[in-house]
């Protein structure tokens, strides 16, 4: 599931031809696993493993389909998850060819892990936060200030997930704003009933009506427009999420990985991202490499 098997299998293929004789079945499995990475010529079937933030699921699936149409020999396989989990997987040697993160921090985790060259990283999209609540609005939320009312069941993403950190940043900035008051952050955090593992879980809990409100990306809110209502967070308080993309160093299909990144940055790719609520990568803040890299 996490795409770790291929690399492990290729190690096996080099070393353990003797051991594999014991079980013919195992041998068959290993051989079939070895076929994949070796044949990377342009006309032969190629599988490209793209590790992408959960919030990119809908947009990247579309871009992947378009890419497959343009390059019929390339099958794009996605591993969508929290950017932090993806960065850890890549650093632990998961066979990723492309990493698309929902923030700079997790991209830099992979850069500092030696898996990505910082000069190859490009910003391809921006995202922004919104507050969502279920259509029937059980907690009667009308303004951002209402999140601090007692008894509101608020769901956030865990701090380890970019959107969770951005939500905390918003609360900190709002507390410095006189129209919210200094106690705003603490009052809102008291209402948190769950720190979910990723942004899609926050969205689902609110869409199901289990929680009274949540903070997600505008792109996620758009996918459930029929069950959630959004409250915009003004630019001054909002954290503009920078989405960087880069090829992973160990990739055996570096050329195809670069083609995929170009497709994401192309006018067509940017239009697809815009359709799902993303802001173009060229405008706004850009990727910054980690200090000292």
């Amino acid at each position: 599931m996490r795409h770790r098997s291929t690399r492990a299998a290729s190690i096996f293929c080099r070393r353990s031809s003797g051991a594999a004789i014991i079980l013919p079945l195992l041998l068959t499995l290993l051989l079939s696993a070895c076929n994949g990475p070796s044949g990377a010529a342009s006309s032969q079937p190629v599988t490209l493993n793209v590790f992408a933030a959960a919030s990119l699921q809908a947009a990247f699936t579309d871009i992947g389909d378009a890419f497959h149409t343009a390059h019929p020999n390339v099958t794009v396989t996605f591993n969508f998850g929290g950017s932090d989990a993806l960065a850890t997987q890549i650093n632990q040697g998961a066979p990723a060819d492309v990493f698309a993160s929902a923030n700079i921090k997790q991209m830099n985790v992979a850069v500092q892990g030696g898996q990505i060259t910082s000069s190859s990283v490009q910003t391809f999209a921006h995202n922004r936060l919104v507050v969502i609540y279920p259509k029937n609005n059980p907690a009667h939320i009308a303004t951002l200030q209402d999140l601090a009312k007692t008894g509101v069941h608020l769901v956030l993403a865990a701090q380890a997930v970019p959107v969770g950190q951005y939500a905390l940043d918003f609360l900190t900035k709002a507390s410095a704003d006189p129209s919210f008051g200094a106690s705003y952050k603490d009052a809102v955090l008291k209402n948190v009933v769950s720190y979910e593992a990723d942004v899609k879980s926050v969205l689902t809990k609110v869409a199901l009506g289990e929680a009274d409100a949540g903070i997600v990306y505008i792109t996620d809110a758009k996918t459930k427009a029929d069950s959630v209502t959004t409250i915009d967070i003004p630019d001054a308080l909002n954290s503009i999420a920078v989405y960087p993309i880069a090829p992973v160093k160990g990739s055996q299909r570096a050329d195809v990985a670069q083609q995929f990144i170009s497709a994401v940055l192309s006018a067509q790719g940017q239009a697809t991202l815009a359709k799902y609520g993303f802001v173009a990568g060229s405008s706004g803040p850009q990727y910054t490499p980690p200090a000292g890299a």
């Binding site: 769901v155 865990a158 948190v192 009933v193 769950s194 720190y195 979910e196 593992a197 879980s201 809990k205």
Partner: peptide, 12 residues
Amino acid sequence: TIIFAGNFPGRT
């Protein structure tokens, strides 16, 4: 647990 009870340190 993570689907039904959510995730809150010390509570779930």
